[in-house]
Simulated scan of single mutants.
Amino acid sequence: MNSVPKNQYLDILQLFRGTAALMVVLHHTIGSIKYYHKIQYPFLDYIAYLGKSGVDFFFVLSGFIITYSAYNKYNEPNSFSNYLKNRLVRIYVPYLPVGIFMLLLYTFLPGFSNSNRDISTLTSLTLIPHGNPALSVAWTLSFELLFYLLFSISFYSKKGWNWFVLIWTSAIIIFTYTPFASLQFLKIPLFRTLFSPYNIEFILGFVLAEVVVRKIKINIRLLFLMLILAFLSFFYCTFNNLKFFTHDANILFSIVAFLSIFIAIRIPDFKISKASVMMMVGNATYSIYLIHNFLQMILIRFFPKITTIVGVITALVLVLILSCFVGYGYYLVFEKKAIQLIKSKLIK
Rank of each mutant, 00 (worst) to 15 (best):
M1Q: 12
S3R: 07
V4L: 15
P5D: 15
Q8S: 11
R17K: 09
A21G: 08
L22W: 01
V25W: 04
L26V: 05
H28D: 11
I33T: 12
P42V: 10
Y46V: 07
Y46A: 06
Y49R: 10
D56V: 01
F64I: 04
T67I: 08
Y68S: 01
S69A: 12
K73I: 13
P77C: 02
P77R: 06
Y83L: 02
N86K: 15
R87H: 08
L88N: 03
P94W: 04
L96K: 10
P97M: 13
V98W: 13
F101Q: 04
Y106P: 11
F108N: 03
P110H: 03
L127W: 00
G131Q: 04
N132Q: 13
A134D: 12
S136N: 14
T140L: 01
E144W: 00
Y156E: 00
K158D: 02
K159F: 13
K159N: 12
N162W: 11
F164D: 01
W168H: 11
T169K: 04
A171D: 11
A171T: 00
F175R: 03
Y177G: 03
S196M: 01
N199L: 02
I200F: 05
L204Q: 10
G205A: 05
F206Q: 07
A209D: 09
V211F: 05
V212C: 02
K215R: 13
I218V: 11
I220C: 09
Y236V: 07
F239W: 14
I251M: 14
V256M: 08
F258R: 03
F258S: 05
A264G: 06
V281I: 15
I288F: 11
I291L: 09
L295N: 11
I298R: 15
T307H: 11
L316E: 04
V317A: 12
L322W: 05
L322C: 15
F325N: 08
G327T: 08
Y330D: 15
Y330K: 05
K336V: 08
A338E: 01
I342H: 14
S344Y: 04
